[in-house]
Design a protein around this nucleic acid. Structure first.
Lengths: 173, 173
DNA sequence: TATTGTTATACTCTATAACTATA
DNA sequence: TATAGTTATAGAGTATAACAATA
């Protein structure tokens, strides 16, 4: 949103405010009308995603894993022998940004980089035993605390329908 | 993710890589197995949200409006006489971060701040005629380009079911 | 004393260019 | 020359503390 540019382009705030008298709403007017916002997919997606991420982090809090870190561990487990670029791009993470993320996981000994013998430029990523153990515990916490809560809220059939629609949007839109 | 801390805590990258020979996957092994990721709500929500935001920005490109800016205009239109704090918190925007955003909209003459006569601390926000015109054009573009495409992908009934579930998650989860 | 708008600041995420070592 | 990992950097988004004006 170019904060600094807006800053530079505008006069000091207080000087810019109109002196016109304001037709303010009564102080007790209550909650605002969100109107069509409740039908805007982007808005609802964003709001729902924030809620889900917050809950995920809470549920998996003893393991100190972010949703992104959990995704990496899941992917490494399912895809042994792959390099950084392959893992990163599959998750929509840019290679430069994946470096610090891997540093974090590797310093906690959840995975290791191994220089490939085929192509000495690339690093094969591998879960450690500790990484596998943490992933297993995380999966359990997610299943019994996070996903279960969601099924309770929506019903299992609706939950699956929701996942299917989101997957379709993510792939085909 | 505390990039700088991770940086400081770790030895230089190349020195940290294990010398063990890597069991790399064949170069032509094809796409990765995303496995259980395709059933993780948070992951799918994030991916879908990014797609939807990208498309929104494309559809409304002639007007140069972000989803967040569009939401503000919608809310101002439905809620005349409200101040910055009320609008910001309704959208989940923190008051300090709303200042620069309003600066941008006001410098484009889409809305104005008016000092309230009831309480001279607060600024009543009001759409300008130009703001209303831009909002009207944006609504049209969103309806005929963005939402229509979504209905086509999911079907109108499914689209409504999706919105209802996301709304429920955003409110009740 | 409390609240509104604001400033300053910091941390995370995301994005791009350019370096190095290998190929 | 091209690619993998990395560095540096810049931009958004988000979060908190503190100040001036006003209540």
């Amino acid at each position: 949103m170019a904060v600094s540019k807006a800053r530079a382009a505008n006069p000091p705030r207080s000087a810019a405010v109109r002196k016109t008298s304001g037709a303010a709403v009564p102080a007790d007017a209550g909650p605002l009308q969100i109107g069509e916002l409740s039908e805007r997919l982007g808005y609802l997606l964003k709001r729902a995603q924030l809620k889900i991420f917050e809950d995920f982090i809470r549920c998996v809090e003893p393991l100190q894993l972010t949703p992104a870190q959990f995704s990496v561990l899941l992917l490494l487990d399912k895809n042994p022998g792959r390099n950084q670029t392959e893992i990163a791009t599959t998750l929509g993470i840019l290679r430069p940004n994946f470096v610090a993320m891997l540093d974090g996981l590797e310093s906690r000994e959840l995975c290791i980089r191994i220089r490939s013998t085929n192509d000495r430029r690339s690093h094969i990523l591998q879960l450690t035993d500790k990484g596998r153990a943490v992933l297993a515990r995380a999966k359990k916490l997610v299943a019994i605390k996070h996903e279960a809560r969601l099924s309770e809220l929506l019903g299992e059939d609706n939950r699956e329908a929701l996942l299917a629609m989101l997957d379709k949007i993510a792939r085909e839109f």
